[in-house]
């Protein structure tokens, strides 16, 4: 009897909740796990600086997942901002439009460097895109022919590299970082190593040519990491001669355990990345639903706060964490575009 009454009460209670679309009084954000730490810092500081607004909620879930959630429609039950570690794609904009999200504002927050690092006990490491391509590509060119990658040791590729088995921990394909790695390292290395010409001769389609260039070996020497950088760090702790791919901010937080490699002779630092001298970097973005500005309390203020020099300027907490600040003119442009209401 008692439990029956309880059941009825519970059912009534849940029915009473149903259908009540609650007006939201805090900003909701989702997206890239690379942007997540920066968004968290801004959200937290925002909540502290503006006690009138609630601290925004920041979900992770990847750039693609965040944009998908973002493009679900307009209204308080959809998110306001999507963080992205790459630019929004054409088909994503189309999907957004189809769901009624016609006005999207793009905000570039700065740059992120991608570094190669190994255990701190190892000797200094100097990498070239060419060497990385030859170590990690599925097929390399030997004597003018495309063959399955035969290299097992770094020294077989370049005598100046360490005398150790090739072991590289690279971001898995669900990470935005992988795209940057393919584009900036493998495609470049493919060209430098002279493999591109051979591939061009063998394949007519430009898409095939590119995918051949960036295909990673699958014999276990290059390991895809689908988790986060902490997993890469653990792999390197287990295999001291392994090389891992990290974000600059993660490396800087664990610099006592890791030794960073130069790429094309350039040490990755905030300065060398901002100047473009260090080759492996990418811009970071977030996207704002314009229809929510002025509806969701604090959204406009959050974006303005994020784009202020207090947050992404040269001496800001985000830069301290590892973000590479965009040049002054670019930041000014971003702020102006937001105020002007420029949409994509």
């Amino acid at each position: 009897m008692k439990s029956l009454k309880l059941t009825v009460a519970a059912l009534v209670a849940s029915a009473a909740f149903a259908g009540v679309a609650v007006a939201r009084d805090q900003v909701q954000i989702a997206g890239s796990s690379t942007v997540l730490p920066y968004a968290k810092i801004v959200a937290e500081t925002f909540g502290e600086t503006f006690p009138d607004f609630k601290t925004p909620i920041v979900e992770s879930g990847g750039t693609g997942g965040g944009l998908k959630e973002f493009c679900k429609g307009v209204g308080p039950d959809t998110i306001d901002i999507a963080n992205a570690s790459r630019q929004i794609k054409g088909d994503e904009v189309e999907a957004c439009k189809a769901a009624g999200v016609t006005e999207i504002q793009e905000i570039k927050i700065g740059y992120d460097g991608i570094v190669f690092a190994t255990d701190s006990g190892n000797a200094d490491l100097k990498l070239e895109p060419k060497d990385l391509y030859q170590a990690l590509a599925a097929e390399v060119v030997i004597d003018g022919k495309l063959v399955a990658n035969p290299y097992k040791k770094w020294t077989e590729i370049n005598p100046s590299l360490p005398d150790a088995e090739i072991a590289a921990y690279i971001p898995g394909s669900k990470h935005g970082t992988r795209e940057v790695f393919e584009e900036k390292i493998l495609a470049h290395g493919c060209k430098d190593a002279g493999a591109q010409d051979v591939i061009k001769a063998a394949f007519a389609d430009a898409k095939d040519q590119l995918s051949k260039c960036v295909a990673v070996r699958k014999d276990g020497l290059a390991v895809d990491i689908d988790g986060d950088y902490t997993e890469t760090l653990a792999r390197i702790a287990a295999n001291k001669s392994g090389i891992g791919v990290f974000g600059l901010s993660f490396y800087e937080n664990n610099a006592d355990k890791l030794k960073v490699a130069t790429v094309s002779g350039v040490v990755p630092t905030a300065e060398s990345i901002a100047s473009g001298e260090y080759p492996v970097s990418r811009p970071l973005y977030f996207y704002v639903k314009k229809a929510h500005l002025g509806v969701i309390p604090g959204l406009k203020e959050y974006v303005e706060f994020f784009t202020s020099d207090d947050m992404i300027g040269p001496d800001s907490p985000l830069v301290e964490y590892g973000l590479v600040a965009a040049p002054d003119a670019e930041r000014e442009e971003v702020r102006k575009a937001f105020v002007d209401g420029k949409i994509m």
Binding site: Q28, P37, K40, A43, V58, S60, T230, S249, F250
Partner: peptide, 28 residues
Amino acid sequence: AFVADVPATPMDPATALPVQIYMWANEA
């Protein structure tokens, strides 16, 4: 998700213990 404000009611955003563990495990 990153939730900084303490939820007053079950309708407010919140996380759960295993979620917090997962998110901290990924911190740098």
